[in-house]
């Protein structure tokens, strides 16, 4: 404990590079989305990154709208979007849709999935779904202090190996681990760290064949799309919103510029 504290106060350390910009969000270089199950401390992480004072509460479902803020790290300007907490991205309530649409259509440069270290298995369900949609993610293993108190030991390196993305243990309430989180976000955003995200195993043979078939066609129609497999899965399941996005071509043309208006309409 004492060691980390000394590290954090040392000017050579990462936090020396951090400038919290609050709601000043003009001309950002990267967009970061904060996703996670309800009540895992997304808003606390958000506040720690941006210096904003979003009301946090020990209260699942507190954030129903997106909150946005910004920070400057190592010369790059980051915009942070705090999404509503969700258990999955496969159902259709308003708050889940806001989160899903942002990760899919918003194409954030990095999606930070905040997970509750004391309930890792359940939280991983969402992580795996996020990793299907995006290949640029960082897992923030939050509430690590509570896990320690409950004598739950998590091998974050093994977890990172399994998931194929960086895993950073944090205790955002005490601001522990935030410098490391920043460094990893920065690495992924700048392409220094290349994620090789875990992909859900395909299940039955027919499913696998079907997914591959559709996936290939989507990649041909929308070159460079990062989540063709997930789109294929959604099409096979008959997700109306995704069907519409394919039909209108919106899936391929959505750029960051017209994104904000799109999202304003959703939220």
């Amino acid at each position: 404990m004492i060691d980390t504290n000394q590290c954090e106060t040392c000017p050579v350390h990462n936090t020396g590079n951090l400038t919290k910009l609050g709601i000043n969000m003009q001309n950002f270089d990267f967009v970061i989305a904060l996703a996670g199950n309800p009540n895992t401390g997304k808003s606390t992480v958000f506040n720690a990154l941006t210096g904003l004072k979003q009301h946090t509460g020990n209260w699942p479902g507190k954030t129903v709208m997106r909150a946005e803020g910004a920070f400057l790290f190592d010369g790059k300007k980051y915009k942070v979007v705090d999404l509503p907490g969700t258990y999955s991205l496969l159902s259709t309530s308003t708050d889940e849709e806001v989160a899903r649409d942002f990760i899919l259509f918003g194409q954030p440069d990095v999606t930070v999935v905040v997970v509750d270290a004391t309930r890792l298995e359940r939280n991983l369900n969402l992580v795996l779904q996020v990793l299907e949609i995006t290949d640029r993610a960082v897992v923030c293993l939050n509430l690590i202090d509570e896990a320690k108190r409950h004598e739950i030991i998590i091998d974050d390196r093994a977890l990172a190996r399994e998931l194929g993305v960086p895993v950073v243990p944090t205790a955002a309430r005490q601001s522990t681990g935030i410098p490391e989180l920043l460094k990893n976000i920065d690495d992924v955003a700048k392409g220094v760290f290349i994620c090789k995200p875990h992909r859900i195993s395909s299940g039955s043979k027919e499913l696998k064949r079907g997914v591959e078939k559709i996936q290939a066609q989507i990649e041909k129609e929308f070159p460079g799309i990062p989540n063709s497999r997930w789109v294929a899965l959604r099409l096979l399941e008959g997700d109306q919103k995704i069907i519409d996005a394919v039909r209108s071509g919106e899936l391929g043309t959505l750029t960051k510029r017209n994104l904000n208006e799109e999202l304003a309409a959703i939220a």
Partner: peptide
């Protein structure tokens, strides 16, 4: 998958 991964890490 989630159960597998968490059993390896926790």
């Amino acid at each position: 998958d989630a159960a597998d991964i968490s059993s390896k890490a926790v």
